[in-house]
Simulated scan of single mutants.
Amino acid sequence: MYKGKKVIAVLPAYNAALTLEKTYKEIPFDLVDEVILCDDASKDNTSDLAREIGIEHVITHQTNKGYGGNQKSL
Protein backbone atom coordinates (compact mmCIF):
# COMPACT_ATOMS: atom_id res chain seq x y z
CA MET A 1 0.00 0.00 0.00
CA TYR A 2 1.11 3.47 -0.78
CA LYS A 3 -0.86 6.26 0.86
CA GLY A 4 -3.78 3.87 1.28
CA LYS A 5 -3.78 2.80 -2.37
CA LYS A 6 -3.13 -0.68 -3.72
CA VAL A 7 -0.06 -0.77 -5.96
CA ILE A 8 0.24 -3.32 -8.76
CA ALA A 9 3.37 -3.79 -10.85
CA VAL A 10 2.85 -5.04 -14.41
CA LEU A 11 5.80 -6.83 -15.98
CA PRO A 12 5.69 -7.20 -19.77
CA ALA A 13 7.84 -10.18 -20.74
CA TYR A 14 9.13 -11.91 -23.84
CA ASN A 15 11.66 -14.75 -23.47
CA ALA A 16 12.53 -13.41 -20.02
CA ALA A 17 13.29 -16.68 -18.23
CA LEU A 18 16.95 -15.76 -17.71
CA THR A 19 16.23 -12.39 -16.08
CA LEU A 20 12.77 -12.79 -14.55
CA GLU A 21 13.72 -14.00 -11.08
CA LYS A 22 16.34 -11.26 -10.62
CA THR A 23 13.86 -8.62 -11.79
CA TYR A 24 11.14 -9.98 -9.49
CA LYS A 25 13.45 -9.90 -6.47
CA GLU A 26 14.20 -6.21 -7.12
CA ILE A 27 10.53 -5.19 -6.80
CA PRO A 28 10.04 -3.07 -3.65
CA PHE A 29 7.39 -5.21 -1.96
CA ASP A 30 7.15 -2.73 0.89
CA LEU A 31 5.29 -0.60 -1.69
CA VAL A 32 4.01 -3.12 -4.27
CA ASP A 33 1.03 -5.29 -3.31
CA GLU A 34 0.69 -7.49 -6.39
CA VAL A 35 2.53 -8.36 -9.57
CA ILE A 36 1.01 -9.16 -12.95
CA LEU A 37 3.21 -10.71 -15.63
CA CYS A 38 2.12 -10.44 -19.26
CA ASP A 39 4.02 -13.00 -21.34
CA ASP A 40 3.95 -12.07 -25.04
CA ALA A 41 4.11 -15.65 -26.42
CA SER A 42 7.62 -16.42 -25.17
CA LYS A 43 9.35 -19.43 -26.65
CA ASP A 44 11.07 -20.21 -23.33
CA ASN A 45 9.49 -21.06 -19.97
CA THR A 46 8.79 -17.49 -18.84
CA SER A 47 5.17 -18.16 -17.77
CA ASP A 48 6.00 -21.35 -15.88
CA LEU A 49 8.91 -19.69 -14.10
CA ALA A 50 6.73 -16.72 -13.16
CA ARG A 51 4.31 -19.05 -11.39
CA GLU A 52 7.18 -20.94 -9.73
CA ILE A 53 8.65 -17.79 -8.20
CA GLY A 54 5.28 -16.72 -6.83
CA ILE A 55 3.65 -14.46 -9.40
CA GLU A 56 -0.04 -15.25 -9.04
CA HIS A 57 -1.36 -13.33 -12.02
CA VAL A 58 0.18 -14.51 -15.29
CA ILE A 59 -1.34 -13.55 -18.63
CA THR A 60 0.02 -15.52 -21.58
CA HIS A 61 -0.56 -14.41 -25.16
CA GLN A 62 -0.86 -17.28 -27.65
CA THR A 63 0.67 -15.15 -30.42
CA ASN A 64 3.27 -12.41 -30.11
CA LYS A 65 1.59 -9.00 -30.02
CA GLY A 66 4.83 -7.03 -30.06
CA TYR A 67 5.43 -3.59 -28.64
CA GLY A 68 2.13 -1.78 -28.22
CA GLY A 69 0.05 -4.85 -29.08
CA ASN A 70 0.60 -4.65 -32.87
CA GLN A 71 -1.51 -1.55 -33.20
CA LYS A 72 -1.77 -0.29 -36.75
CA SER A 73 0.04 2.94 -37.51
CA LEU A 74 -1.98 5.92 -38.62
Rank of each mutant, 00 (worst) to 15 (best):
N45G: 05
T63I: 14
F29N: 01
K65F: 15
P28Y: 10
M1T: 11
E56G: 10
D44Q: 03
V7I: 15
G68V: 13
T60R: 07
P12I: 09
H57E: 06
D40I: 06
L11E: 03
Q62F: 08
L74Y: 14
G4F: 13
A13W: 06
A50P: 07
K6A: 08
L18C: 08
Q62Y: 09
G69D: 15
D30Q: 09
S47M: 04
G68A: 15
E34R: 08
N15W: 01
A9D: 00
I36D: 01
Y2L: 12
A16R: 00
K6Q: 11
V10C: 02
G4Y: 12
A17F: 00
S47D: 03
D39H: 04
M1H: 13
K65G: 13
K65N: 13
H57V: 03
T46H: 01
L20N: 02
E52I: 07
T63L: 11
I8G: 01
P12G: 09
E52Q: 11
A16L: 08
Y24N: 03
S42H: 02
L11K: 00
A17N: 00
E52T: 10
Y24T: 02
H61W: 15
D33C: 05
T19P: 04
I53P: 07
C38D: 00
V35E: 02
K22S: 11
G68L: 15
S42V: 00
K5H: 12
A13D: 08
Q71T: 13
K72D: 11
D44L: 02
L49E: 03
N45A: 01
G4S: 12
L18N: 10
E26Y: 11
Y2E: 09
T19A: 11
Y24I: 01
H61P: 04
L74D: 13
K5A: 13
M1P: 10
Y2G: 07
V10K: 01
L74W: 12
V10H: 03
G4L: 13
D44V: 04
E26I: 09
R51P: 03
I8T: 02
E52H: 08
Y67A: 09
D40V: 06
N70V: 10
P28D: 10
L49C: 08
